[in-house]
Structure formats: structure tokens, C-alpha cells
């Protein structure tokens, strides 16, 4: 039985990266829905602003930064090997796409936060806490010998998934009662929602943990992200069939995509997800 240090900075950073990915995935999707449902004049105005910002970055800021790098003698990053003209064009196009995406995201997020600061922060915190907590549990479990990512991830996911909705519904009831004097949910609805939410998060925690404990590929972070998306797709299938709840299904999916991207984006995720068994070299016969 191995013991692990109680405080581990890389684990913490990995969990925060995953949590932030999920949080921003969710908020960004909500912002996109808000943009899509806005008046057409507003939409055109917003799209124009985004296009202008993107153009400004690509045609002015990027060359300017390049010149500054050259002037200050800072070497270009990620350009270690010379590239053919066609490759360079593709890279420029990719950079443009990323910048446009970043500008769109930024504008949408700004719009969303401007509309409701407290609500957005609340959404972000909830979306951050659960995936972040589950990721941390996976990372702790992965380092046990034998690996315990399934056990730790599932237990954490069940508890956090059930508890956060329970607390949220009770707080909403308290607030509603103060203004309207009636409870917005019945006890049966509350129980059903809490149990279903706990089980749904539990399935995600179990799937990710299973991949970490059992799969032996070189990129466990990718495998976890794919497993999460597959489970999210299965869980949200009923919502995808029903237009009235489609947006709720899709925002869950956006959260999971953000979670997966957050995992992949964290540079040390693959190493951290390597279980203790895989990390220890096999004894030489």
C-alpha cells in the first residue's frame, strides 16, 4: 500500500485546469445561446465587432509583436524547423481561426458576464467545483497501488453531483419562499433530481476512473476526455431528441467538452494520470 503526499501542486493545477475548462465551456455555451437568441441588429453589431477585433489582431497586432520580437532579439517559439510555403499558409489560417474563436469567445463571455455577474460567477463556480473535484480524486487514486481512480472518482462524483443540486434547490426554495411564499419544487421532484444528478456525475466519475485504472495507452488524458464525451452523449441522448430541453442537454455537453479540453490542455496531465503501476518500471528479469 503506498501513501501519497497530502498537498501536491501539479495535481491541484490539473484539477483547476479541468474545472476551469468545464466552467468556461458551460458559460461560453450559455453565452452563445444568448447571442443566438438576441435581436438580429444586436447580433450583426456583435459579429461586426468580433470580426474587426479578429482582423485587427491578425493584420496589426500579430505582425507588430513579430517585429518587436525581432527587434528585442527574442527567438520565435514553435518554429524550430523551417516550413514550406503551403504549411506556413495553413498555420496562418489556423492562427486566424484560433484568434477569431478567441475573440468570439471573449465577446460572448463579456456579454454574458455583463448581463448577470453573480449568476455567471455562480455557474462558473459550480461547473468548476465538480469536474475539478472529480479530477483531483482521479489524480489521487491514480497514484495508489493498486490504482484507485474508479473508486475515488465515482465516490467523489456521486457526493458532489448529488449535494450541489440539493443545496442549490434548497437555497432557491428559501429565496422563493421569502418573495412568493411558495416552494418551487416538491419533495419528490427534489429527490428525483438529486439522485439522477448524483448518478449522472457518478457515471462520468466511474468512466474516467476506469480509463485511468485500466487503459495503458501513452495519452491517458485524451482517453479520459473521449470517455467523458461518450458518457455525456449517452446521458444527454434523451435531451437531444426533445427540442424543449435540447439547450439543457447541450449545455451539459459543452461543460463536458470543456472539461476534456481542460484536461488535454494541462501539459502534465498525461504523466499525472499514469497509474503507480505504469509509472514504476517493471523489474528486470
Amino acid at each position: 500500500m503506498s501513501s501519497s503526499p497530502p498537498v501536491d501542486r501539479p495535481r491541484w493545477d490539473g484539477a483547476v485546469s479541468a474545472g476551469l475548462g468545464a466552467g468556461f465551456g458551460y458559460v461560453l455555451f450559455r453565452a452563445a445561446v444568448n447571442f443566438w437568441t438576441a435581436h438580429w441588429e444586436e447580433r450583426i453589431e456583435e459579429a461586426l465587432a468580433i470580426a474587426l477585433v479578429g482582423l485587427g489582431i491578425v493584420r496589426f497586432l500579430e505582425p507588430l509583436i513579430g517585429r518587436l520580437r525581432h527587434f528585442l532579439g527574442i527567438p520565435e517559439e514553435h518554429m524550430l524547423t523551417p516550413m514550406p510555403e503551403r504549411g506556413r499558409r495553413v498555420i496562418r489560417l489556423a492562427i486566424f481561426a484560433i484568434l477569431v474563436l478567441a475573440s468570439v469567445s471573449h465577446a460572448l463571455l463579456h456579454d454574458m458576464i455583463k448581463r448577470n455577474v453573480a449568476g455567471t460567477v455562480g455557474l462558473l463556480v459550480v461547473a468548476l467545483l465538480i469536474p475539478g473535484g472529480i479530477t483531483y480524486a482521479w489524480l489521487v487514486g491514480a497514484r495508489k497501488d493498486p490504482p484507485r481512480a474508479v473508486r475515488y472518482g465515482t465516490a467523489t462524483a456521486l457526493v458532489l453531483g448529488a449535494l450541489h443540486l440539493f443545496v442549490a434547490l434548497v437555497v432557491i426554495t428559501l429565496m422563493n419562499r421569502a418573495t412568493e411564499g411558495a416552494s418551487p419544487v416538491s419533495l419528490a421532484d427534489l429527490e428525483r433530481a438529486v439522485i439522477f444528478n448524483g448518478l449522472a456525475w457518478g457515471a462520468l466519475g466511474a468512466a474516467g476512473g476506469l480509463v485511468i485504472d485500466r487503459l495503458k495507452g501513452p495519452r491517458p488524458a485524451w482517453s479520459v476526455a473521449i470517455a467523458l464525451m461518450a458518457i455525456a452523449l449517452v446521458l444527454d441522448l434523451p435531451a437531444l431528441h426533445d427540442p424543449s430541453v435540447l439547450v439543457y442537454g447541450l449545455d451539459d455537453f459543452a461543460k463536458i467538452i470543456g472539461w476534456g479540453l481542460g484536461l488535454i490542455a494541462y501539459p502534465r496531465a498525461n504523466r499525472l494520470f499514469m497509474t503507480a503501476r505504469r509509472a514504476t518500471p517493471a523489474p528486470q528479469a
Binding site: 443545496v167 434548497v170 426554495t173 428559501l174 419544487v185
Partner: peptide, 10 residues
Amino acid sequence: SGEMIVDRTA
């Protein structure tokens, strides 16, 4: 406690 807040008969 939370259930009692939602429904006093809990």
C-alpha cells in the same frame, strides 16, 4: 434539514 425547508411534512 434541507428537506424540511422544501416540505414541512418531510
